[in-house]
Design a protein around this nucleic acid. Structure first.
Lengths: 185, 185
DNA sequence: CCGCTCATGTAACTGGTTACATGATTTA
DNA sequence: TAAATCATGTAACCAGTTACATGAGCGG
């Protein structure tokens, strides 16, 4: 017999992230998972219903989530929790070694544009650097507030995670400042 | 008459990036565009043939690229260059204002994992931070070399762009070091 | 009773991917 | 002359998206 392909196929980052969310929030409806994505300042995944609902059922069929139906009033809902194998899968994803490329350089719309900045007139280049810097500073406030929120809620590791975003945005601000200065000369 | 939808639809980042590459390298075959992606240390886009060839023809049909057939020996090839409207489109993409979210926080596999690190035993958490840090240090060498390569080739703006990646990786190293220290206490 | 949130889902689309296929030209 | 590179392309797939639809419960 061939090994069951569906059982073996590696999960996507979104699937592991959902596993992580359920681990934190269990018992947790698919709707609650969606909200988690909506409230995140990161917009890489939108956590759309069209992604989350089929995904949750998929993980349940694979035995990584277990579903239980509860009700509020006469209304039913499905709450998920991690199964034993789900927790094991989450831990395997978290623990070293990291997969190829997990520490690699990430997509950055500002960097992508900077490669081709010579196509603009010098004055427009400086405007780009100044504008990008301003936008980054705005982002810094948003993620800074998010760090505080996690701190106050006592979720120190999430705060530490979000501090990664703070570090990165500060680095990008420094980079855009440097770019502005170099373009000014 | 309705405005032609195909003409008006916004381009993706990949399409603008190809526009930028052609602007730099014209006259430039689709194959050469692919190589540009292969040689990039960023792996967000793989620049696969299945993406690049249809994309180039699409941009040509929209009038953003113009194609010319050359030959080496008795073998034909199609070389692209930017049209006037293509250059205008590239410049509009580059110039302020940036689209919504261009300065937003980006996807980071390390950050995503850090949110759920409490699911690991304390010793495994520290191992994660140490391992991630090591992997980032390796990346720093790679992108540092890339900066030098651009500097030597005289392409200062590309070097400046790649220095953005250096800034970000250094920030992520500092973050992982901090995380390691905090987990050690 | 109106509008908001909770809750669940589907259909059509999209923008990439992998894998494959073909053949000329160049280089070791 | 074999292997690598140049060059072009297609087919099947995939993991997301948007947009839509439905309906219960709840607060003002």
């Amino acid at each position: 017999m061939e090994p069951n392909k569906a059982e073996k196929a590696a999960l996507t980052d979104l699937e592991f992230t959902v596993l992580g969310i359920v681990w934190k929030r269990a018992p947790c409806t698919a709707y609650a998972i969606m909200r988690e994505f909506f409230s995140s300042p990161s917009s890489f995944y939108r956590g759309s219903a069209g992604a989350i609902y089929p995904l949750a059922r998929r993980l349940e069929k694979k035995g990584l989530l277990k579903a239980s139906t509860g009700k509020r009033g006469r209304r039913r809902h499905v709450a998920y929790a991690l199964s034993r194998t789900g927790l094991a899968a989450l831990r395997k994803w978290l623990a070293p070694p990291l997969p190829e490329g997990a520490a690699a350089i990430t997509f950055d719309p500002l960097r992508t544009r900077t490669y081709f900045l010579a196509a603009l007139a010098p004055e427009q280049r400086r405007a780009f650097a100044a504008h990008a810097r301003d936008e980054l500073v705005k982002q810094l406030d948003i993620v800074g507030a998010e760090v505080d929120r996690y701190r106050k809620s006592g979720d120190d590791l999430s705060a530490l995670a979000m501090e990664g975003a703070v570090h990165v945005i500060r680095a990008r601000i420094a980079w855009m400042t440097e770019l502005g200065n170099k373009l000014a000369r």
